[in-house]
Design a binder for these strands. Structure first.
Lengths: 168, 168
DNA sequence: ACTTTATGGATATAATTTATCCATAATGGA
DNA sequence: TCCATTATGGATAAATTATATCCATAAAGT
């Protein structure tokens, strides 16, 4: 019942893209350095964001990835589903049919369980669809208008001098 | 974001124990046959139920496993947590600290995310804690008082002749 | 004592996640 | 047009986790 690491990686990518100067796409190779994975792997991840419709990409010189829409229109659900596909908790390997020889009660039981877990899915879907990346970012930065910079060249503390990290 | 197969296996075990004649513990070896896994593996699973307080076990001749309490007091949450431990969706590998060099905003972001996912956890915890095995079983069998039999020897259709499986 | 059953440690197997490499396509600039 | 840069997609490797088994031992009843 754990989300994969990909979700955490995707969240970091969203933060980078959300604070990226709107004009310039961010090269996935830059993101890969920052998250400590190979460029090729990072491209797999960003690709998922593109397929989901969260990001857009352009090839070539000065190409890269940028957000396809406002952070206010990107939900946690979008991000999770981009990485993991639809939320479905129940494994449903058909064990009940095996154990109870596919009788009447086996089928009823299976349906009941599917329903119980689908309701669990729906709780998460409803909740995460209402949590927007925009809200979290604004909360995190403590401002209404997110700072922007060019992550292809700079780092956050260039723009936010009160940042207390080891960023240079 | 999927529950493991163990949860499905545990559910089947609960069904067996819930319909087991109260006097006789059910041998885990019998359960293992029914669920198509090795006796030793099944003992690992039943052990988790015992540790969680859902079941009790006795060694020796005519020993086995039985429910520690009424099915009405066993929740889906109990079963899930018996198999998987506490519900915690967020992987939290510390990637944000790595990506943003552990600055002020990294820490804030991490806390915000932990909180967001913890709320998701809580939705599931609340929901599944209110779904009782008893309710599901009664719904499944369509009766208020569950049929009982000795799974050490018999099968369900001995007791429920309208069962439509290939059980003998 | 003997049989039956659970417990616990070590280990094997399978599946999934995480990640990389490489060949190719797209894009823009010199 | 050629070159450098960047994304795409297929194949595959490495790491982790889930699933499962074996075996030695302990507990309990007959």
């Amino acid at each position: 019942m754990q989300l994969t690491k990909k979700v955490e990686q995707a969240i970091c990518i969203i933060v980078l893209l959300a604070t990226q100067e709107s004009s310039a796409p961010l090269a996935s190779d830059e993101i890969s350095k920052r998250l400590g994975v190979s460029p090729s792997y990072m491209k797999k991840i960003t690709r998922k964001l593109v397929v989901q419709g969260i990001a857009v990409s352009v090839s070539g010189n000065n190409g890269g990835v940028s957000l396809a829409k406002s952070v206010d229109d990107i939900s946690m659900l979008d991000i999770i589903e981009a990485m993991e596909g639809p939320i479905q908790m129940y494994p449903d390997t058909g064990l009940i049919s095996l154990a109870f020889h596919d009788g009447k009660y086996a089928k009823r039981g299976q349906n009941i369980l599917r329903n119980v877990f689908a309701q669990g899915d729906n709780l998460l879907i409803e909740y995460f669809s209402k949590v927007s990346a925009g809200d979290l970012l604004k909360e995190g930065f403590g401002v209404e208008n997110l700072p922007t910079l060019n992550w292809n060249q700079e780092s956050l503390s260039d723009v936010l001098p009160w940042e207390q990290g080891d960023d240079k």
